[in-house]
C-alpha cells in the first residue's frame, strides 16, 4: 500500500458515500409514502347505502339493511383479480368457523365468471351482491380489488384492509377487533 494522501483530499473521497447516505434516508422515507397506507375516511362512519341484486344464478343480493344488527365482514372481489385468489383460502377457512357472516361484493365481473370462480374455489359468502358497473364500489371508496371491510353492529365501517387479506392481518387486527365489537 502506498501512503495515503493528505487529509484534505481524503475528505473529497468521502463525498460520494455522504451523498449516498442522504439519498438513502430519503428513499427510506419514500417507502412509507406508499398509497396502500391510506386509511379509509369511511372508518367510524356508517357504511354507504346500497342495494345490489344477486349474481345471476346465485342466491342473495346484498343491501345496507343486511349489515345492521351484527358484526360482519364485507369483501370486494372479482374473478379477474389475481390477489383475490390468494386471499380466498383464508376466507374459506374463516367461513368454516362461522364466527361472523361474510358478505361479498362481486366487483365489475361477469356473472358466469363469478359463478365459475365460486364453484371451483368454494363459496365463503353468506350473501353476494353484484356490482357490475362499480358504482357501489365507488361509494365505498374501493381503490382496487380485493378490499375487505369490517362492519360493526350499528352498520359503521370499523376497519378496512386494502389488498389481499393475509393471515397476519386477519389474526392480529381484524379478528381481535371483531371479537371486541361482538362483546
Amino acid at each position: 500500500m502506498t501512503t495515503p494522501g493528505e487529509p484534505r483530499r481524503n475528505l473529497l473521497y468521502l463525498l460520494p458515500v455522504l451523498v449516498f447516505a442522504g439519498l438513502a434516508g430519503f428513499l427510506y422515507q419514500g417507502l412509507y409514502l406508499h398509497p396502500s397506507e391510506i386509511p379509509s375516511p369511511l372508518i367510524g362512519k356508517p357504511a354507504p347505502a346500497f342495494d345490489l341484486p344477486a349474481v345471476e344464478g346465485l342466491p342473495g343480493g346484498l343491501s345496507r339493511a343486511d349489515l345492521e344488527g351484527k358484526v360482519s365482514l364485507v369483501s370486494v372481489f372479482a374473478s379477474w383479480c389475481g390477489p383475490c385468489r390468494l386471499e380466498h383460502p383464508l376466507l374459506m377457512a374463516l367461513a368454516e368457523k362461522k364466527r361472523l357472516p361474510i358478505y361479498g361484493i362481486s366487483y365489475k365481473d361477469r356473472p358466469e365468471d363469478s359463478r365459475g370462480w365460486l364453484q371451483s374455489l368454494g363459496n365463503p359468502y353468506d350473501k353476494i351482491g353484484a356490482d357490475r358497473d362499480g358504482r357501489v364500489g365507488f361509494d365505498w371508496g374501493v381503490y382496487g380489488v380485493p378490499e375487505t371491510y369490517l362492519i360493526d353492529r350499528q352498520g359503521n365501517v370499523a376497519f378496512k384492509v386494502v389488498g389481499p387479506l393475509t393471515p397476519e392481518v386477519l389474526e392480529s387486527q381484524v379478528l381481535p377487533l371483531a371479537a371486541r365489537l361482538m362483546k
Binding site: K45, P48, R135, D139, G141
Partner: peptide
Amino acid sequence: GRWKDGAGP
C-alpha cells in the same frame, strides 16, 4: 379528508 357518507352518485 372524507368520503361522503352514504352518498350516492
